[in-house]
């Protein structure tokens, strides 16, 4: 059975065309999938997931240039679009540009820290590119969390754990910003120099805050049994990735 592509360019109501386009793509009806998606984009030109879908359709059609263009637009709409990051990483990996693939996957991990597909893809790319010591950096603990937030305590990306809601992550970001403000003040007034990190150890977790930029801080949350040194090391490496992500976003 083949799914009928709409004969009219009018897409299904709302964003339902995304589901239809994806189903068509999975069934291999690539031209129909492209038609539905393009019609939807005519109505929602700023919808990142639609550009991501179009990228996957073009990749399936082996039109890498069109796929890359679609995913680039998806990132313009939303820097945290994991699908677009994965797609661009895939194209870069296939094209032999392993550094670009790693860069895209690091950004994808920041956007979706608990997506095992992304973290294992990052591991694979690193295994192909990096010295043997390079292991999984950002997601060394699936129960952990990683989050970027700005000076005002607004969450930029990430969360505090797989079981934590976005609301909880937002609340934690707001409170962490106050910790950063107090730490900045304390290090300044006590002449301890610019702050470099805050480590908090508790019975439930070990958390660390690192300055990423003037207006952004990284929070890393790990289980209470994680060695502190490992939390710090992971935080330093995550900070590098977060800086790169911020630069691409701005």
């Amino acid at each position: 059975m083949t799914l009928p592509a709409s004969s009219s360019p009018t897409p299904p109501r709302g964003h339902a065309f995304l589901e239809l386009g994806e189903r068509l793509r999975r069934r291999g009806q690539l031209d129909a999938a492209a038609t539905v998606t393009a019609a939807g984009l005519a109505h929602y030109p700023d919808l990142g997931p639609a550009h991501d879908l179009l990228g996957r359709i073009r990749a399936d059609q082996h039109d890498d240039a069109a796929a890359a263009a679609a995913w680039a637009v998806a990132l313009e709409c939303d820097q945290g679009n994991v699908g677009a990051r994965k797609g661009l990483a895939f194209l870069a990996f296939r094209g032999g540009d392993l550094a670009a693939a790693e860069r895209h996957l690091e950004a994808a991990v920041l956007a979706a820290p608990h997506d095992p597909e992304v973290s294992s893809a990052l591991d694979r790319v690193r295994a192909a590119t990096a010295p043997p010591i390079a292991g999984p950096v950002l997601l060394d603990d699936p129960a952990g969390g990683i989050m970027l937030f700005d000076r005002e305590g607004m969450r930029l990306i990430g969360g505090v754990g797989p079981d934590a809601s976005d609301e909880m992550a937002d609340a934690v970001a707001a409170e962490c910003a106050a910790v950063v403000r107090e730490s900045v003040r304390a290090t300044r007034l006590l002449h301890l120099g610019p702050w470099r990190q805050v480590i908090v150890e508790g019975p439930d977790s070990r958390s660390a805050l690192f300055p990423v930029a003037d207006d952004a801080t990284l929070l890393l949350v790990r289980g209470a049994s994680t060695p502190v040194g490992r939390v710090v090391a992971a935080g330093h490496r995550a900070t590098v990735a977060a800086r790169a992500w911020l630069e691409r976003m701005t």
């Binding site: 006590l190 702050w195 990190q197």
Partner: peptide, 19 residues
Amino acid sequence: AASQRPPRSVRVSGDAGTL
């Protein structure tokens, strides 16, 4: 905010010292 028990220790490090 994270629905966790209170921390046991806090360490703030700067370039010129640690609290």
